[in-house]
Nucleic acid binder design. Structure first.
Lengths: 211, 211
DNA sequence: TAGATTGTTAATCGATTAACAATC
DNA sequence: TAGATTGTTAATCGATTAACAATC
């Protein structure tokens, strides 16, 4: 696929549009103007039209946007029109929670395999999937590849495991370890830094108005 | 506390500075210049100096920054110099994972109470804390207040529970439900939308260079 | 003191908003 | 057709970067 140069700010807003359009579908709304949507989402109508036009003219003058069509088009832009298989690396509290989560499946992200290095965990079955020995990570992922590796491991082993999944051919990493991974150009990483999130909450809490 | 008008972009970068300074402390580095740090963090030295000067002159001309001092000052800015008590609302997979997580405690965020509405869960003990009946949420939190309410509940009940914790006097909400909460001006909310994160990963994966 | 590096002002760049012509 | 609303260009605003005087 081509056209890079779309700013990160635009991309960050896409899932939010997608979410609001989903709500509109559930409400049974067929069409919406950028003005109405902007009112609902608390952004400017200009921003909505600018954002959407990075990806194509999804609206119609005098009419607005067809909700279902726009939802589906944004879904395609986000790559949600095809399923994504995931391997969870590290079956601790978070790994388990992600494995059991139902929200991801509804967007066609499904867990295909799970790995851990703890003998007490290897062989256990979670959500119908048997946890494999992380020692066989590379060979196993080469045999049975996944789209996404989910790293839910302590930060001191995250870099080494990232290298291994890349060796096995994984191109996308969802990193929950509290460290930054160095990866080749053609590998994408999305970090979930919960501690950072908590710190922002702490900041906003201590700088809350009239405190 | 005063001085608002500090941009959200700056605040988002603070935890990252904090993290890097922590690494430098572990490495035993005493001082660092904005140029060195910028090189390490892959940002401009200008940005670092601008960001830090929003909060005070933490450096010294000709010398740079004292790593420990800067770390501690950013900690204060983030409000990490005081402990934060948390109540976890919703003891599902995620609630449990957060309750058992050790990373938060190391930054002085500790779980004080837990609530659920499922009779099978109420009364159970997790990490030494007994899960209380969510029916008593408001009275219990009024008696034994917390700084932060962690919402790990399905999205259809999140809004109602947010109202309840606000009624009980909670001022800060860490929201894991996949919906946007409407709260009064003086309440702060930090959202963790894992599905959005996964969608960004999906976007970047499908628009990966030379795919 | 001379050298280094900050704090801060000025210049640039990019993102957001406003305006309006195109068009359904 | 007339009215509405988009797609898109132009104007504004804010954030990032560069430059440099202040100073340790």
């Amino acid at each position: 696929m081509k056209d890079q140069k779309i700013s990160i700010a635009v991309i960050r807003r896409l899932p939010r549009y997608y979410r609001y359009l989903n709500i509109l579908i559930e409400e049974g709304t067929d069409r919406i103007s950028s003005a109405e949507l902007s009112h609902r989402m608390n952004v400017t109508a200009s921003q909505i039209r600018q954002d959407l036009n990075h990806f194509g003219g999804f609206g119609q003058q005098g009419y607005g946007y067809n909700v279902k069509y726009l939802h589906s088009e944004i879904g395609k832009v986000l790559g949600l029109d095809k399923g994504h298989s995931m391997a969870i690396i590290g079956i601790g509290n978070f790994g388990k929670a992600l494995a059991r989560n139902k929200d991801f499946a509804s967007n066609d992200f499904y867990v295909k395999s799970m790995f851990d290095s703890d003998p007490a965990v290897i062989g256990r079955e979670i959500s119908g999937i048997t946890v494999q020995d992380a020692a066989h990570l590379v060979t196993s992922l080469k045999e049975d590849p996944v789209d996404i590796a989910v790293l839910t491991v302590p930060k001191d082993v995250a870099a080494a495991l990232a290298d291994k999944v890349i060796e096995a051919g994984v191109k996308a990493i969802w990193n929950f370890a509290h460290c930054e991974l160095e990866v080749p150009d053609n590998i994408v990483v999305e970090n979930v830094y919960l501690v950072d999130s908590l710190m922002r909450l702490s900041y906003n809490d201590s700088h809350r108005p009239h405190k």
